[in-house]
Design a protein around this nucleic acid. Structure first.
Lengths: 261, 261
DNA sequence: CGGTATTTTGAGTATCGTCAAGGCCAGTGG
DNA sequence: CCACTGGCCTTGACGATACTCAAAATACCG
């Protein structure tokens, strides 16, 4: 499964909090206090960051890499309920234990803040509180996006929706999107098995759906994890076109690419 | 469809903010300020509360009834991404337009706060800010619960999960749960069509799934919208048992009911 | 009582889950 | 250098499930 269940360990050193997305606008004083209570940790793909039900000792912020949030079912199967990327925060503030487990989907670097001092700082810094609130609000939106995708009755449609989300929401993350040489190529950041868990199906169906989209001419499978997007509109139709707005920027990018080619 | 698209209108009068769940613990001073900027509105089932994309003028808190949040697809179909019940808050604070439309699923009373003053108050009152944060965090958890349910490959399993959520999370709400005369009866608060949208399937499949569960002896269909729960464990197994913890309280309730009968 | 919306049922087809086998790639050890 | 191993992805076949279309039954409302 690739999930070896080992825990990452602190690689020492504080993070440069000011370089975290969104944190730059915080007052220097707040940043200094954050700097004092944070630490960078590195995790290899498959390592566990937080167990479910754990009284999260830390509040974290992803610096590089991708984490997956998952719920463990009683029979041992695991359902992925979201991905965390650059600048995403996690860990319950003010509240009880975390309801999801968090594992590294790729090698990742995380900025960890000790929980108690972080909460104390939160009460004193409205700017930070606002940042956290926006972060959670953003995550809520993303969760709803997943819901719309999952509600699609056909696997092919769910996969199309997933690819579009990858192109829009995860666009400027890591190396997910590569608008190289006149083509739009996406790097699938998780395994087929994980993708199946995320989309509520089995790896076999994922594979078939990929090739069905390829047969339609919507995508080209250059490698299992490297997918070239050919027809955004077709994917949108397949996915149900949840939001036309979202694709506008993506379509623009496609046109620019085609003009360049 | 029952969605007549009409807007509710203010029925005048301020709400008794102190009686809102969670608000009771706020300082009297904060409560007084809230009182000054709020207003109660009543909506009939099917009326629109907020349009999607609207620069939400208000932040709201449900007092009675049930609202549904939905995303409108370009072809006009609508996907439900969640339900709002008593004490649930909605409307983006600090952020842009709402990404979902909100309609009354049943007759509902809502406490509306003007957005600008509410945000201002938020900055001054850490207690209120914390309340809002917890509210959003709670909603995020619920969204993830929906995701786990939606990821279930069989419709029967998704429906079982929905019923369990109805019994646990919506337990002490409106008239959803009626532990009358030794039986546990649930009132489905939305139509079959809406339920189909929520669970990512069609009304026909919903109907068949209900009767399949009835044939299994897990439930009894006393009326299309009145479902009697017989076997919580069977439903849990069918749903995938996402969290055994959640059912503990429900099982207790069942035992109490059976002892009483 | 008639009209409408909702729910249910039925039959046929497409899709998907399941089981089993094969292929591809990377790392390992001879 | 090559066989071997194990993980991941793919493919095939078959049965179960769910979607589609159509129509009937039921409930709701004036």
């Amino acid at each position: 499964m690739g999930h070896d269940g080992t825990r990452g360990r602190a690689s020492g050193g504080n993070c440069d909090t000011a370089s975290l997305q969104g944190f730059g606008d915080l007052p220097a004083e707040t940043l200094a206090e954050l700097e004092a209570i944070c630490r960078t940790r590195s995790y290899a793909a498959g390592q566990t960051v937080v167990e479910a039900g754990e009284e999260a000792e830390f509040v974290g912020c992803v610096r590089t890499g991708i984490l997956r949030m998952q719920k463990t079912l009683h029979d041992g199967r695991q359902h992925i309920v979201g991905l965390l990327v650059e600048a995403d925060m996690f860990g319950r503030v003010f509240d009880g234990p975390l309801s999801v487990a968090i594992e590294a989907a790729t090698d990742a670097e995380i900025c960890m803040f000790q929980r108690a001092p972080f909460e104390a700082l939160l009460l004193r810094s409205p700017e930070l509180e606002r940042l956290v609130l926006l972060s959670v609000l953003n995550e809520l939106d993303r969760a709803r996006d997943w819901m719309v995708i999952l509600a699609n009755p056909r696997v092919k449609g769910r996969l199309a929706g997933f690819l579009l989300i990858l192109c829009t929401r995860f666009a400027n993350v890591d190396h997910v999107l590569r608008p190289g040489n006149g083509r739009l190529e996406v790097k699938i950041p998780i395994t087929r098995t994980d993708l199946a868990h995320l989309l509520g199906t089995r790896p076999e169906s994922i594979s078939r759906a990929f090739h069905a989209l390829a047969d339609d001419g919507s995508i080209v499978i250059r490698a299992p994890e490297r997918i070239e997007i050919l027809d955004v509109d077709a994917l949108g139709t397949e996915a149900g076109d949840e939001d036309i707005m979202n694709f506008a920027s993506l379509k623009d990018m496609m046109q620019v690419l085609q003009r360049r080619a």
